[in-house]
């Protein structure tokens, strides 16, 4: 029982030890602070997106600010809603971006749900000595089909059936011999 429990914990651990990704998708400068926006997936799609900002002043990281993200739709409403539904933000709602969220602790980040495709404006509200907002224009393409994200898991069933069939074949061949 303990061995099986250990195996489960191990497998779960393997699943969470993933790689960090994301690269700079926008740079802005406001009140002497250089704001670098990281985003994933690249290019952005409707649905869940991992966004982060790195704040830099005079070559040093700013780690004492409070940061929030707001999404504002610039283009006309899109007919194709994102499948991610509940995780998506209502436009204009502010979400706090925090240092602890990403693997890289120098980045203020949050997972945002982009409700639909089109042109969006991301307002990054920075509250340090004073309040300032950096604006980034984002283009979100049509949402990816969920199968594109989860295909490795869906493939497990055919893979399992194939392995089982292969095993049965090995055993029956052995029996014949």
């Amino acid at each position: 029982m303990m061995a099986r429990l250990f195996m489960l914990v191990w497998i779960a651990g393997v699943c969470v030890a993933g790689a960090d990704g994301g690269r700079v998708i926008g740079v802005s400068e406001i009140d002497g602070i250089r704001v670098l926006l990281f985003g994933q997936p690249d290019p952005l799609r409707a649905g869940l997106a991992d966004l982060g900002v790195y704040l830099e002043k005079n070559g040093t990281s700013c780690l004492d600010a409070s940061v929030g993200f707001r999404l504002i739709k610039l283009s006309a409403p899109s007919p194709d809603p994102s499948w991610a539904g509940p995780g998506c933000l209502a436009p204009g709602v502010s979400v706090p971006a925090i240092l602890g969220h990403a693997g890289n602790k120098l980045v203020y980040s949050a997972v945002l749900g982009i409700p639909e495709s089109g042109i969006w404006e991301l307002a990054v509200d920075i509250n340090r000595d004073r309040f300032s907002t950096a604006l980034f224009e984002l283009k979100a393409t049509a949402p990816a089909h969920p199968l594109a994200t989860w295909w490795p898991l869906v493939l497990m069933v055919p893979a399992g059936v194939t392995l089982f069939a292969w095993r049965s074949r090995i055993l029956s061949r052995r029996q014949r011999q």
């Binding site: 869940l48 539904g85 995780g87 969920p146 994200t149 989860w150 898991l153 869906v154 399992g160 089982f164």
Partner: peptide, 27 residues
């Protein structure tokens, strides 16, 4: 109230387990 990123994956894994188990029993 929000949907964690891992939830759909876990749901698919559960369904996978149920389906493979049923197939194995049927076989």
């Amino acid at each position: 109230t929000s949907m964690p990123e891992w939830l759909p994956g876990m749901q698919i894994l559960l369904l996978n387990a149920g389906c493979l188990f049923t197939l194995w029993l049927l076989w």
